[in-house]
């Protein structure tokens, strides 16, 4: 357990450290959220109806972009060898890396999501649900993104490959989260969508590390 904490601290320091980290993810998020209304037209009532969906979709993209090199840097500079030989199994290494990504990028983004939604004209009633969805969904985004990043290890076109692997896996959480937000805004029962989202995130956290560790072993071999 202590080895896990040592690694988590280092991953957090790397994520927060020089090179932007959460600030960069937040800036990207702000850019996308600003860009979409420019493309979709500025009629306030139309924007208000799109707001939760836009805030939610941009979260998925911001999470994706910030974790494309989650394993690649360690693979290139030899640190992945060290991590593979350490006291914790590679599965735990994968958990530490994804968890650190979620703490450094996912959680700040989850707090920024309501601001974006409000700026686009969403009603304040959806804010608590949006934060809950963003926190739970962000966990799924981090772990599934880590899976894509580990599968793309060593490939030249890593970034695009990660997106192509990961975006289909992002479909269910995007549907469940957007569905719950939509239902709440329309006065319909919304707990079903949130529960499915939580279940999907739990499955990603439980199963993702096994696949990531296998992909890393394969890349090192």
């Amino acid at each position: 357990m202590s080895a896990f904490l040592v690694l988590l601290r280092r991953e957090l320091a790397l994520a927060w450290g020089k090179g932007g980290g959460p600030l960069l993810a937040l800036a990207f998020y702000a850019c996308v959220v600003t860009l979409l209304p420019l493309a979709a037209g500025r009629a306030p009532e139309r924007l208000a109806s799109l707001a939760p969906g836009i805030a939610w979709l941009a979260l998925a993209l911001a999470a994706l972009l910030s974790l494309e090199r989650l394993f690649e840097r360690d693979f290139e500079d030899g640190a992945l060898d060290l991590l593979a030989l350490g006291p914790a199994p590679l599965e735990a290494v994968a958990v530490a890396k994804c968890l650190a990504h979620w703490l450094a990028a996912g959680a700040p983004l989850a707090l920024a999501a309501p601001i974006a939604a409000l700026a686009l004209g969403a009603s304040t009633a959806i804010i608590p649900l949006l934060i809950a969805c963003a926190l739970a969904g962000g966990l799924a985004f981090s772990f599934l993104g880590g899976l894509g990043a580990s599968l793309a290890l060593g490939s030249k076109r890593g970034g695009l490959l990660v997106a192509v692997i990961v975006l289909p896996l992002y479909v269910p959480p995007v549907i469940f989260g957007a569905g719950a937000l939509d239902a709440l805004a329309g006065g319909l029962p919304w707990t079903g969508g949130l529960l499915l989202l939580l279940a999907y995130s739990a499955a990603a956290v439980a199963l993702g590390p096994i696949a990531m560790a296998a992909a890393c072993r394969n890349a090192l071999d």
Partner: peptide, 16 residues
């Protein structure tokens, strides 16, 4: 996991 060290071509140090 407990008894070996490996120091390879790549030193595994983060440049930043």
């Amino acid at each position: 996991a407990e008894a070996l060290h490996m120091v390879g071509h790549h030193d595994g140090l983060k440049s930043t």
